[in-house]
């Protein structure tokens, strides 16, 4: 303040340091790993979504989450738990009502934002490493101001998680009635992780209790907030775990559906 009072701001220069960053550690490792991880997943998911095949195991009622709910008229009728509404062009994903919202839920997620702003957009690639862009407006204006709509997609994601849970329940079947196998465990594990990821969302944490000014007046919501906060600390881990479990589940269902492997059955 001495300085602000005696020297108008803007007059003085920053220290003249030639190097763009003086970091000596491998700061590029984390963004690189993110690019590889997300890139690989997106490639796999794109291929699978437009494969339009091997998503339903007739015998055991396994439906991969990538095709749930299956709503185009080319879907196997048994796999369409919620009806068929769309024409079966190859460009339309069979889960056209859910996939875009899931994608947007993850795209606007506070963790993924950090991950891709750093690794893909280089803004900044790592702490104290210069931004790759000449100017910066952040999320103050269109299009990035749309990131504020994360809340909407969270509401959708809850609905979709319910649908996925229903799929898991329906899958406890065998040709002779009740039964379960390894596929059920994988589906169940996946959906639990999906719930974990969805519930641990920052928006959820806010809605559950974060928006309250007085926790002491809402003891139940405070406890719920405490639980969500506990999960929220693990939001990043859950984000990656669910990517893994989604791909794994899908791959398993595909393998069984295509007849490459047969499901390991525990009961019937």
């Amino acid at each position: 303040m001495t300085s602000s009072a005696t020297n108008p701001r803007g007059v003085r220069a920053r220290a003249a340091i030639a190097a763009k960053t003086l970091r000596t550690d491998r700061w590029w490792l984390a963004p690189l790993a993110t690019v590889i991880g997300l890139g690989a997943w997106i490639t796999y998911a794109t291929v699978r979504v437009f494969m339009h095949d091997h998503y339903w195991v007739e015998k055991y009622h396994y439906l991969t989450p990538f095709y749930s709910p299956c709503v185009t008229d080319r879907c196997i009728p048994e796999a369409s738990h919620f009806g068929q509404y769309l024409p079966g062009w190859w460009i339309i994903p069979d889960a056209a009502f859910t996939l875009p919202f899931l994608l947007l839920f993850r795209l606007t997620c506070y963790y993924y934002r950090k991950a891709y702003y750093r690794s893909f957009w280089l803004s900044p690639p790592a702490c104290a490493v210069p931004d790759g862009h000449a100017s910066y407006g952040g999320e103050t204006r269109f299009p990035l101001i749309v990131q504020n709509s994360h809340r909407y997609f969270f509401y959708f994601a809850v609905v979709i998680s319910l649908i996925n849970s229903w799929d898991v329940v329906l899958a406890f079947r065998s040709p002779d009635g009740f039964g379960f196998g390894l596929g059920n465990l994988i589906l169940l594990g996946n959906v639990i992780m999906l719930w974990g990821y969805t519930i641990s969302c920052h928006s959820c944490r806010h809605i559950i209790g974060g928006r309250l000014k007085h926790f002491s007046k809402h003891p139940v919501r405070y406890r719920a907030w405490g639980f969500v906060s506990w999960l929220n600390v693990r939001h990043m881990q859950l984000a990656w775990i669910t990517l893994g479990t989604l791909a794994l589940t899908d791959f398993y269902v595909m393998s069984v559906a295509a007849g490459w492997i047969s499901d390991l059955r525990f009961i019937n």
Binding site: R113, K114, P124, C127, G138, E139, T140, I145
Partner: peptide, 15 residues
Amino acid sequence: QGLGFCNITKCCTEV
């Protein structure tokens, strides 16, 4: 305060 400028890349928390 320009809250919208923040793109939550979390360097503040890291340091």
